[in-house]
């Protein structure tokens, strides 16, 4: 366990010093800070727009950070030859990969927590604490996005075991977008009686195979309190378990590929 934690800690140390990530994070924080001023542009409720905008910024920025953080993870270690000194020590390849993934997750946690904290403060200042429970409710969004980003980081790490960074970058973003938008489309195809059986079968296959990122887009009930998830605790537990299982599968396959890879 110790090598995994050491590798994870080093990965966090590197991530928080990467200028590109810090610039993206800073842009995200700035958008959240100026968000209260955007409410006046909307005819809709100021609070609704503020919530939607802040959550959107956190999700978008986190997605970019998760992808950039993970696509270079393994190729950089190989290119800089740091992997050789590590693997020549009593460190198994799976420990290296899990350590890198854990480092990416901890870095995401750190960066997303920072954005969420700023969001909480800005929301509190704007709302003048009319209802403190609203802030807690609002933070459910980033919590779900965090699991979503852990899943995306697992996709990025998985591809980085055998793909160059540029291909991985577009592929990971592609998987994220398809995994986000395909599920609602799939539901429509399933419900439509005119859908050809073959199309339904293919859609079923894609829906099963691709990670369902849409599970974690819980912004609608947060933005519009009139919409509610029935049995919220059960839903959150369910999608968390789904995420953990999917991440585990991706990491196991990634380890099997990386274990055989010539570095």
């Amino acid at each position: 366990m110790r090598p995994i934690l050491s590798i994870a800690a080093t990965t966090v140390g590197e991530a928080i010093r990467r200028r590109v990530l810090l610039v993206i994070l800073l842009i995200g924080v700035l958008f959240i800070v100026v968000a209260p001023g955007l409410g006046i542009l909307s005819a809709r409720s100021e609070t609704t727009v503020l919530r939607a905008f802040m959550l959107g910024v956190i999700q978008g920025v986190s997605m970019i950070i998760a992808v950039i953080l993970t696509v270079y993870m393994i190729p950089n270690e190989i290119e800089r030859r740091t992997i050789y000194t590590i693997l020549s020590k009593p460190v198994q390849r799976w420990q290296f990969l899990v350590g890198k993934y854990l480092g990416a997750v901890l870095s995401l946690l750190l960066m997303m927590s920072m954005m969420s904290a700023v969001m909480g403060v800005m929301f509190f200042l704007q709302q003048q604490s009319k209802n403190p429970g609203e802030i807690a409710d609002l933070l459910k969004g980033p919590a779900m996005y965090f699991i979503q980003m852990c899943l995306l980081a697992a996709v990025g790490i998985f591809f980085s075991t055998f793909l160059p960074p540029l291909v991985n970058f577009f592929l990971s973003i592609g998987v994220f977008l398809v995994g986000t938008f395909f599920n609602p489309l799939f539901q429509t195809l399933q419900e439509n009686k005119n859908t050809a059986p073959m199309v339904k079968l293919i859609a079923q296959g894609v829906n099963t195979f691709l990670p369902n990122f849409a599970n974690y887009n819980v912004q609608n009930p947060i933005i519009n309190p009139t919409q509610q998830i029935q049995n919220e605790g059960r839903y959150f537990l369910g999608v968390t378990v789904y995420g953990v299982v999917y991440i585990s599968i991706l990491l196991i396959i990634g380890i099997l590929i990386f274990d055989r890879r010539e570095v």
């Binding site: 050789y84 000194t85 020549s88």
Partner: peptide, 9 residues
């Protein structure tokens, strides 16, 4: 092992 032209963090 000390690799050729090593890079460290």
């Amino acid at each position: 092992y000390l690799p050729e032209r090593p890079y460290y963090y």
